[in-house]
Write a protein that binds this DNA or RNA. Structure first.
Lengths: 220, 220
DNA sequence: TAGATTGTTAATCGATTAACAATC
DNA sequence: TAGATTGTTAATCGATTAACAATC
């Protein structure tokens, strides 16, 4: 019996939700039916406290003396994340990365539906990727009026992103999945942005290596 | 004159370094020579305090009354991140995503050097991606002995990752860039891992949309 | 020197962990 | 009922912000 949902969920909590969702899904696949916060905590290398705190931001999904029913828990987390919403999504930039994202990602699994791919290179027009024909940017207006997409994926260079972003916001895009190096938040503070800065991620790895090597030889 | 470096840098600080590195690089490109923490803070939507605190974990890169010399600052952050280290990197899984990563990423820019690509599908053997011939997994041992790679990029399904990871660790891999859904930390606690869970990122976007819609209509 | 801005210490804020009463 | 485990409040810990003395 879910209780009232806290209105201000911290970003730290939200960031953990997809991982909960994955782990619970995994356990279900393995045939596990119920799990206590302690069980889960051990499997995920977290504390039981944190798991209970996190889940209780959204209501009481567990039962005293029993734990959490995993099927129910997964359903609830899925609802919170909106994985069944199928948000209409368009992708810009059908280069290597754009094509990989378009064809590799299981959009439906994550609450999205890819309905269009645009590329400014006219030689790519009508080429098929992920069962969609690549469209020229000149088709954008018509397409947006008809389909009203909500999410834009940016797989284009920084300069183009800078140029395109305002236009997309004006045309009703509400959220960006940003693979470009353009800092969207700087110009559009009230837009939803998820940055997938792969370069940053790789640098962190490089940092880790650079600084673990020195870990033993810790003089100087 | 950099002062002594703190030994225990928090993960929150480290995560901000790549962004500092990018912004400072950007400013340099624009011809800016110096910048105060206040300037930078405004441009990056942070507080001046935070920037000074962060940088001071690694030593005194600034000068009172002047601010930070950007060229010097970039060089220092680069050194911390290890962007000139060129860590030898191999990639597993030459599917769409693997190919995109291999050909799209500017590895040298981020402290790495891609020296090998492996795929278990023998039909792909010798196919060229990013100027490298795809190798069969049977070549692994020979290749590793000769080249001693340090980073492995996993663009393979969860099940294969689970199987491969132990082997890679045993063969001397020190760090993983993990695109699979396998949770490496669970089995190898002392290994450096950067997870690039694109699905998680997309779910966060879906979360954002799902919950911004309700923001105005905030009853019940 | 006076002005600016850092490096650093202290105060605040938020997130994580621990504890325990409620309850299945 | 007794045992288990949650939901939730309180305590701790860490990270961010503010303040200011040091200094270029």
């Amino acid at each position: 019996m879910p209780k009232s949902r806290k209105t201000d969920i911290s970003i730290s909590v939200i960031k953990r939700l997809p991982r909960y969702y994955r782990f619970v899904g995994e356990l279900i696949k393995q045939g596990v039916v119920r799990s206590s916060s302690g069980d889960l905590a051990e499997k995920m290398s977290l504390t039981a406290s944190q798991i209970r705190q996190d889940l209780n931001c959204f209501g009481g999904f567990g039962q005293q003396g029993y734990g959490y029913n995993l099927i129910e828990l997964r359903k609830e987390i899925g609802k919170i994340l909106g994985v069944d919403c199928g948000y209409k999504t368009v992708l810009f930039g059908a280069g290597n990365l754009g094509k990989a994202i378009a064809s590799h990602m299981n959009f439906e699994k994550y609450g999205c539906e890819l309905i269009g791919i645009f590329d400014s290179d006219l030689r790519k027009t009508n080429e098929r990727v992920a069962n969609l024909k690549i469209m020229p940017v000149s088709d954008m207006e018509r397409f947006f009026e008809e389909k009203k997409p909500e999410i834009a994926i940016l797989c284009i260079p920084k300069a183009s992103a800078q140029e395109l972003a305002d236009k997309l916001v004006a045309m009703g895009i509400k959220a960006f999945w940003n693979f470009s190096h353009y800092d969207l938040k700087v110009s559009h503070k009230d837009i939803i942005v998820e940055n997938a800065h792969l370069g940053d991620s790789l640098m962190m790895l490089s940092y880790g290596l650079t600084n673990s090597n020195n870990e033993e030889a810790e003089e100087e």
